[in-house]
Amino acid sequence: MAEYKNILTVSGLKAYYKLDHFGITREVRAVDDITLSIRENEIYGIAGESSSGKTTLIKVLAAAIRPPLRIVEGSMTYRFGDKVIDPYKAGKDEVDAIRWKNLSYVMQGSMSVLNPVRRIRKSFEDFAFRPMGLPTREFWGRVETHLKRLNLSPDTLNSYPHELSGGMRQRMTIALATVCQPQFIIADEPTTALDVVVQKDVLVMLRDVQKQMGSSVVFVTHDMSVHANMADRIGIMYAGRLVEEGPTRTLFTAPKHPYTAHLVASLPRIGDRSPKAALEGRPPNLSDPPPGCRFHPRCPLAIDKCKVSVPPLEIVGESHRSACWRSDDVRPLTRFEGVREETL
């Protein structure tokens, strides 16, 4: 197996929302026992439906948690060059020092994250001036070069957010998140609210930025067709757990978890009118998840064992892990004509 340099290592991470009102304690296990590592220079996609804990996971990764969300167990280590840091053990100054410079974040609904009453120039100043630590003139020179590289006109810096279209604003927030050339970028549903033509522009831009800078991107969306075109590896989340992880192509062509097989099969495609079945049932309530494998109430392959014991995330192939007792019995539900047998 090839050796990869990891930029982020997460092991046994548990982050729960703990509510304690009038003596009644409620615990929502949004991130439950997650072990994963992100390599240098890759796009790692995280997929899963709403309330599967995707957003909580990346909040934890971004070290941006607030009560009632708490880290219960586990560790998380970033390695930026020679600097090794665990944001939850390091002091506030050390975390502030990596933020935006090494670790940046394209937020969910970035359409509306720019301050509406300040020019975009000001947002760049607020976010990037201090981490970059350059003299004013050099700083603006760097910002303008960066914008030009992303095919954005530096004149847009003088506009207010409402003067720009949704796609343009989205590209500005990506430019803002990447201006310091961070090694690690977290992108939370950056294209969900955009329509098809603009969505593709934004995705192409994000890919280009990643290629130019060689940084790692954690890309979160529930849309598998976006992952198919963006991610090098994908992690599938279900009810707060990572249920399968592997190279994009492997997950699409030879999934080893029934949930993944289903997600891939339910994608509609132009030129294909065969009936597509939807998964019945609803995602489990995270404050009271089902025992055993959390997917078993909706799983077509469930056996008695699934109802009582939790399947571990085990290696089932090269860089491929799956948490299913019956992973050997999972068959892909879709055929990809472009894929030859040998690559399976």
Partner: peptide, 29 residues
């Protein structure tokens, strides 16, 4: 299947294809 107007062609070209997943063949229309 065969859009004729350029705008229809643009829309069709913007659909993310999943026929060749994981190869990163993402190009602008």
């Amino acid at each position: 299947d065969t859009p004729e107007h350029p705008y229809s062609q643009l829309l069709k070209a913007s659909v993310l294809a999943i026929d060749n997943p994981g190869r990163g063949e993402l190009e602008l229309a």
